[in-house]
């Protein structure tokens, strides 16, 4: 199979959606001729024109709010919010409007809205352009949350997001944009709520999201040489969250490590750990361990940034301590 980058996989999903459904359009800051801050939409403006690929003012409330309204009126808007640090600017429209709309009106309306946004640190961009705030939205019933780690997942999950009749936030880790992987040329989609076992293993279950999946796989391979067999699971969607795949793995390994770039307190790992303790306690041979970004905003200096974000060495140590528990 041909290999393309994570960025190209997302662009291909957008291109397919724009081509196949006239009700799909894109809106966001600088997404036109430039193709967005990370050039994900590059070329789409030239191909589909300014009606379908809409540059907006720097107005996150209006971008998400107008997209919500347009979705209520039957369109399928895809917005790009340049960094997930900017999602709180549109907080009311996401949390109070798009997410609650269908419910508070007794099921009268659909909001088929996709919000693409960029998350993650690693580029010394400091506290306003580096956050991983997906857990804020796990705490908001009414949204679906996607957080892919490979080009294959990125394309298939984005197609599902666009076809979904509910509001979806789709998080793209910017350190993954240049990563390559096999992606079919044809159109395909990946169902929400299906975790993917990225690597099978016997000794420890490692649940990771976004770029931490890549780091975790690299660590797992190294540990394989040392005789430790790690199973790496990527939930891929945080809402819906596929706990069944995780429970199956826990039954096998009895040991769980959760790794994410969101900060520790009330991060996705807190919810996953709580559910494991409620539903799979009898299978545990050690307490569930979490490895997450330390509870501070993301600092700028590379040495500081590396210190607060889980590194491969931290993952390795955590796995060994679980193994030896």
């Amino acid at each position: 199979m041909r290999e393309i980058t994570f960025r190209e996989a997302i662009r291909e999903a957008l291109d397919e959606a724009l081509r196949s459904d006239a009700k799909v359009f894109l809106m966001g800051e600088d997404i036109g001729p430039l193709g967005g801050a990370f050039t994900v939409t590059k070329g789409l403006f030239d191909k589909y024109g300014r009606k379908r690929v809409r540059n907006t003012p720097i107005s996150e409330v209006a971008i998400v709010g107008a997209a919500t309204g347009a979705a209520m009126a039957g369109l399928r808007p895809i917005t790009e919010i340049m960094f997930c640090d900017f999602l709180p600017l549109a907080g009311d429209q996401i949390i109070n409007q798009a997410a609650k709309m269908r419910y508070m009106f007794g099921g009268q309306v659909k909001v088929p809205l996709t919000i693409r946004t960029i998350l993650g640190a690693g580029l010394s961009a400091a506290a306003h352009h580096s956050q991983s705030n997906e857990a804020l939205f796990m705490h908001t019933p009414g949204l679906k949350l996607v957080i892919p780690s490979t080009p294959y997942d990125a394309k298939g999950l984005l197609k599902t997001a666009i076809l979904d009749d509910n509001p979806v936030i789709y998080f793209e880790h910017r350190c993954l944009y240049d990563s390559k992987g096999p992606v079919p040329e044809n159109s395909y989609s990946i169902s929400f709520g299906r975790a993917d076992v990225k690597k099978e293993g016997r000794d420890v279950t490692l649940i990771a999201t976004a770029e931490m999946v890549i780091k975790s796989l690299s660590v797992a391979e190294e540990l394989e040489q040392e005789g430790i067999s790690v199973e790496v699971i990527d939930p891929r969607t945080l809402n819906p969250l596929d706990m069944e795949t995780i429970y199956e793995s826990v039954k096998k390994t009895g040991r769980v490590l959760i790794v994410h770039e969101a900060v520790l307190t009330c991060g996705p790992g807190a919810e996953i750990a709580a559910r494991i303790s409620e539903e799979a306690f009898d299978y545990l041979d050690a307490p569930v361990k979490r490895l997450a970004t330390k509870d501070v905003p993301i600092p700028m200096a590379p040495v500081l940034e590396d210190f607060v974000i889980p590194q491969k060495e931290d993952i390795k140590i955590a796995i060994k301590s679980l193994r030896n528990f």
């Binding site: 709010g65 309204g69 009126a73 039957g74 409007q97």
Partner: peptide, 25 residues
């Protein structure tokens, strides 16, 4: 009727969006 709204000003961006849909369609 796209709904009354408990957030003061919450409907203003939404109205802008349905108008966008009408122009688009």
């Amino acid at each position: 009727i796209l709904g009354a709204n408990g957030i003061v000003g919450g409907g203003i961006p939404i109205a802008t969006g349905t108008a966008l849909a009408s122009q688009y369609l």
